[in-house]
Write a protein that binds this DNA or RNA. Sequence first.
DNA 1: CTAGTTCCGGACCGCTCGTTCCATAACAAG
DNA 2: CTTGTTATGGAACGAGCGGTCCGGAACTAG
Lengths: 186, 186
Amino acid sequence: MLLFWRKGYEATAMSDLVEGLGLGRGSIYAAFGDKHQLFVRALARYLDRQNTLLRTAFADEGPALAQLRDVLDRLLAADAACGNAGCFSVNSIAELLPHDEDVARLARQSLAAAEEAFTRQLARAADEGDLSPSLTPEAGARLLLTLVQGLQIVRKVDPDPAHTAATLDSAFTLLAGQPASLTPTA
Amino acid sequence: MLLFWRKGYEATAMSDLVEGLGLGRGSIYAAFGDKHQLFVRALARYLDRQNTLLRTAFADEGPALAQLRDVLDRLLAADAACGNAGCFSVNSIAELLPHDEDVARLARQSLAAAEEAFTRQLARAADEGDLSPSLTPEAGARLLLTLVQGLQIVRKVDPDPAHTAATLDSAFTLLAGQPASLTPTA
DNA sequence: CTAGTTCCGGACCGCTCGTTCCATAACAAG
DNA sequence: CTTGTTATGGAACGAGCGGTCCGGAACTAG
């Protein structure tokens, strides 16, 4: 739901949703129950799509760390495509937690899934010698996950894609341990 | 303003503020204009306090990287003291950007100030040999700033202080380049 | 004490919110 | 075509919103 994404839960009125969905009020209530349930459904859809992206992108073999970087780029690009609204998940967590138990549950599941996917991918990277020895895959995953959430906030203040890319570059350079492995200079 | 902090802008009603401030409606409007101006004033106060904390904490001499870590710990602890409401600044950015120009201006200023303070501190750390050679102070500052914003989101989902501390530990280990420098093992 | 001034806060206003309801459109079965 | 059923969406509702207003308390000066 683009409206909830862009404006947040409280700032989106039922009348906005009626206009945005092209449905009558009665139909919306018949289909979703109430405003909050509609929001939760929309968020669940969004998170599911995100997690599917992660799961499928990591199925292949190949250079694990470069794959990870690529997925993060695509993920950030997808969120950026929706007019600097940031990330629906991050926005919802910031606005509704810790008060909303449904959103909290969804967020816990989604972040745990992402963290696990990152961990598996970083474990592969470690096998390939692309992970800094000072970092366990678990620690690296948590670090990366946290950084991505932070990027979603920082991007709302400074939307320059180059800055986002530069931050990711720095992070992956550190993760790799040896700078040359990701960007083989000549 | 604790109420705006905890519940966000839209979810906080004037009647909440009347009760919370112990003032009558009329007095509030006479003093602040309207709800939005009151919010902006509250946010500005919060940001000012945060930036003051940074500025004063970095005035001293001493081990720059350890100082930085200490400041971040204190900053996160201060936000945690207010019942897992997260960080007022991060919450506001997520809820109101990109629609609210006043909040956008405040956020830009505050983040820029923090980034600059981090940069100066990391430059000092570099002089002391405590910064990874694969990182400029500017890149490290942006990385750290982004990570802290991310921590404020992740903490709302997983409030365990140990996890927050562990994430910071990993980050500083990577920033330092050589793991032994921060935690001199025997 | 009185008169003048300031400031507070509860009653009140118009409006919009989320939600419900129902006349009617649309369609399937006989 | 008629009838029974479902689904639609606009009108209407009570509640609660942000914002205004004014009677009176509190304080100062003479």
